[in-house]
Design a protein around this nucleic acid. Structure first.
Lengths: 243, 243
DNA sequence: CGTCGGGTTGATAACTTTCAAATTTCGTGG
DNA sequence: CCACGAAATTTGAAAGTTATCAACCCGACG
């Protein structure tokens, strides 16, 4: 199995030089390929003992629903990311995961993953790194929603997704394909859909970015970075580094 | 070393039955006790290659500062929690950690921790669990700030801290000692200090809780839970379970 | 065609911030 | 023990940002 075989291995390989046996272990983990249709959840809050997945293709969102029916989207995982890793170690899933488009993913059963830790301690380290990178992203997302205005929030979110997509070869600094609706953006940013619409218009009229049907276009990347105060250090993806 | 020896081991033991050699490993990790004074950061965003700590006594906050000088507090770790775990695996620290009171903590060097993974794979699992619990808390915090009103946010935050303190024996469902200022609450909740003050007054006048100098008193726990829509499942602390 | 999900815009309301100032609390030195 | 200054809390008034409500448009699709 080469390093190119899965986006997950490729992503990790960009950061940590994996030894052969660890690659083999990942390869062993990643055997069961599955497909999910847009809108059909692969995890729902409260479910027990679910598997994790590694996304290989398509768009997903992880979210929580509140008692009043409103929704907070926590992340839009991209290919190479774990889905539902926490549901492997936690008693019950504390969030839901829904495909936005049809997706493909490798299934990783809970036993496989735990067993792999004993065989390949460095894999444990890599999984821990992935989990901590997820936490870093949620943390920055919290900063975004807690302390930035609507327009800065929007710029920051779209820049982060762009930076992550670039790492796996799915975007450039001039833009990327993006099937999200304005409702998705609203639920991710803690805004109303109406205000998202106005905010996107403001960004467009400022000549910074264009969000249109299925595509994000950065018209002024440097200007966006300045507006959003975007520093990708929290993504820890300026690899590769062996540690 | 008994299970009672450190709050950290006690906390983990409440969830995962640790084998003797893993307890010994933790014990070996936890040898260097250190003290930090209130207001003197033990980690600052951008620092390289820092150690992690396990907090044993006192109050801390982890936060990020934005370009305009505003602050978002991400968490108030309590005794038994890791501090700066991410700075061990990440190139640079992506957040800062500041003691609110004088604190005591065990230092865990990065090499110690990585080495321990090879010796005790189950320790890797335990650390991964701790990291994922941290992520679950940040995620719920994001939901709180993104989708709840000021009064519900406040109730939720104070309930969460209470639930976590109870697990390590530092609080009851009638309240707990709490040295946080209204500025701390504001920076954690994404509100202004002025509005925090009004929100606390509203909670007091509704007969739900009293926040006074150094103490949180729950006057109507069930009412608070209802108001905040508080479900502690995301803390995954209804153990012990061996998995 | 008719419906439906998404997008767009205007008007109004709600919640929260900002600014300003007064009051209380608390640590510290005289 | 008291006085003082700094920090934290409290309150009012005005401004600002974002939500809500309502309507209309548009393109996809059965």
């Amino acid at each position: 199995m080469t390093i190119e075989a899965s986006p997950f291995a490729r992503k990790l390989a960009a950061i940590i030089a994996l030894f052969d046996n660890e690659l083999a272990t990942i390869s062993g983990l990643s055997r069961r390929r599955r497909t999910f249709l847009a809108g059909h959840n692969l995890l729902i809050e409260g479910q027990l003992n679910k598997s994790a997945y590694i996304l290989t293709k398509g768009w997903v969102c992880s979210y929580k629903i509140l008692a009043d029916g409103s929704r907070q989207i926590v992340d839009f995982p991209i290919p190479g990311d774990f889905l539902g890793l926490r549901s492997v170690l936690f008693r019950t899933a504390d969030h839901s995961i829904e495909p936005i488009t049809d997706i493909e993913a490798f299934e990783v059963s809970r036993l496989d993953l735990i067993d792999a830790f004993a065989v390949a301690p460095r894999l444990a380290k890599a999984v821990l790194w992935a989990a901590m990178r997820d936490e870093a992203m949620v943390m920055e997302h919290l900063v975004n929603v807690g302390r930035r205005t609507a327009i800065k929030r929007m710029a920051h979110l779209l820049l982060e997704i762009g930076a992550r997509l670039r790492l796996v070869g799915l975007g450039t600094d001039s833009g990327y394909d993006c099937p999200l609706s304005q409702y998705h953006l609203a639920d991710a940013l803690g805004l109303s859909a109406v205000h998202v619409n106005r905010t996107l218009r403001d960004l467009r009229e400022a000549g910074l970015l264009t969000f249109k049907r299925g595509e994000v276009v950065f018209n002024d990347y440097a200007g966006l970075v300045r507006l959003a105060d975007f520093d990708p250090a929290y993504l820890d993806q300026d690899g590769p580094v062996l540690r």
